[in-house]
Design a protein around this nucleic acid. Sequence first.
RNA 1: UCCCCUGUAGCUCAGCUGGCAGAGCAAGUGGCUGUUAACCACUGGGUCCCUGGUUCGAACCCGGGCGGGGGAGCCA
Length: 464
Amino acid sequence: MKRPTLKEVFELEPDGRSLVVKGWVRTKREAKAAVFLEINDGSRLANLQCVFEVPQAGSALAAALAKAGTGASVAIEGSLVASPASGQKVEVKAVGLEVIGEAPSESYPLQKKAHSLEFLREIAHLRPRTNTFGAVARVRNRMAYAIHQFFQERGFQYVHTPLITASDAEGAGAMFQVTTLDLERLAKSGQGVDYGKDFFGKPAFLTVSGQLNVETYCQALGRVYTFGPTFRAENSNTTRHLSEFWMIEPEVAFNELPDNMDLAEEFIKYLLKTALADCAEDLEFFDQRIQKGLVESLGSVLDKPFAHMTYTDAIAELAKSPEKFEFEPRWGSDLQSEHEKYLTEKVVGGPLIVTDYPKEFKSFYMKMNDDGKTVRAMDVLVPRFGEIIGGSEREERLDNLLRRIEELGLDTSTYSWYLDLRRFGTTPHSGFGLGFERLLLYVTGMANIRDVIPFPRAPKLADF
RNA sequence: UCCCCUGUAGCUCAGCUGGCAGAGCAAGUGGCUGUUAACCACUGGGUCCCUGGUUCGAACCCGGGCGGGGGAGCCA
């Protein structure tokens, strides 16, 4: 493509070359000697300043400049020169302006001023035009790419697990049902539901995790990962939950829990390092406007190894702390958010991996320890945020897995194919899940998960 | 699902004990200036979320509803 993005323009020599740039007007300032138009095309955070000599009244240029208000899309013709004023290295000495699409100031919702994130959430179709959401989108893109890079560089195969599943017992949480049955007619008829007539011939749902499916490819390809959308119908209304979110789930054959912990640590560090190196401008913006100290906080994670602690030790650590917790830490109760934050922020002052939780509040597929009470689970906790990764070594012994399924009153027949993985050539194997949007919250310092996904879905929220 | 806070101009908010609807920013106009979160002056701009009630009188008090935010649980 001939026309450079603004990001590319900023890297050119200001040698007076002529060019055409296109983008959206962010701000216009009119002075006696010149009119300054700053445009942005989303390729990076910085705006490009285009300087027009004050045109003759009544000229075509004067008319175009009058229409080029905040939000208008424009094409600008001129030459790239070094800027005589401080604030930018280069600028466009503009001679031509075409207003492609106006954005009338009386009706265009975005103004030349700061807007609250709450307000911008209500105009999700326009918010990517702001500095904050542009930066979030660029970081999101870079992290998605980095995830593939990390795994591909290490010999992992990308596996596409299904979004629709006929098993309603994947372990975690409420599911969205998928049906082609006419619900209104069914309701009026007063009849029961005959799932034999439904599309799949039985109840079907949107997946809550690709893990069980990806384990099958793990037991063939060795190192695999998924990266796709996941759905949870939980009625949870917090800054950390979405009904539709993206999840990364690596799974590695022959890996035991310590290998899994190492992989998670290496993964997180790789992503943070990439963000700091390749999204420096955007992260600096977040540091200044969203979360003071962000860049330093992310950088500090790279320096030292993640701390490790068993659940039992974590409880002991909490019990001896002078901190007053709302929920008293007690062996047998799950760690609360306040506990997790205390451990990672106050006790270790950095990322912390807690392992070996009581089986009662972990999934059926996690490997039982010899004590018969705890399982080979791990949660990665980070400062400012809490749990960012949950994973485990899986139970690879058929007898143990069957026993757990029965203990929990689950239906063995539903898991026949999953159990086959233990019947034929079973291996120790481990994996974890990383919520992509949670990673983005951590990396950007944004506070609400609804602001790091383009179109958030949550209870009573499916606009746009 | 539970707890708390909140709904007033385009945006962010103030509005006392119930007594004529306010500010800053944005916008428009003029001025000034190689400006850059530009600056100065003036101007326009309101279903005080909806609904029912109390009252001579409600943005304000009470009931109901709807929306937004934060926290908890659940979890990634």
